[in-house]
Amino acid sequence: MRLTQGQFSFLPDLTDAEIRAQVQYALDQGWAVAVEFTDDPHPRNAYWEMWGTPLFDLRDAVGVMQEVTACRQVHAGRYVKVLAFDSTRGFETVRMSFLVGRPAEEPGFELVRSQGPGQQIQYTLRSYATGSPAGVRYAAPPPPAGGAT
């Protein structure tokens, strides 16, 4: 399956230039950009791991892209997303969220049904990946060609 959380998951994966353009838009609005990653993509997992704190003082898209790139390298094979936080009164929340990295293989979710009273069914969504311990949930990216045997 393809996880379609975020603003642009129905489009082809964004290029670095396209990510930078979106980051620039966020900065132009006065929002703080943040990078987060996870290996637990449950739709109600509100707290992905933070790649540092939101970049409140970084007003330059090139600098933000360095953080995006670094996070994607360290956490290759996990989900990585870019967020924009708006501190304006009346919002004070996330204003943008889009994926910039995902595992090569996405096993998706099992829908667990348990019988309730009458015709009722209680549904639980379980990520196939979270059956494994954190850190080894997704296949490591393939080793470079010609590497050590």
Binding site: M1, L3, T4, Q5, P41, H42, P43, R44, G108, F109, E110, L111, Q119, Q120, I121, Y123, L125
Partner: peptide
């Protein structure tokens, strides 16, 4: 009952709420 089956199936297929 049937709507919630549809909703939950779609959540499992997409990973979205």
């Amino acid at each position: 009952l049937y709507c919630m089956e549809g909703v939950n199936r779609a959540m499992a297929e997409t990973g979205e709420v």
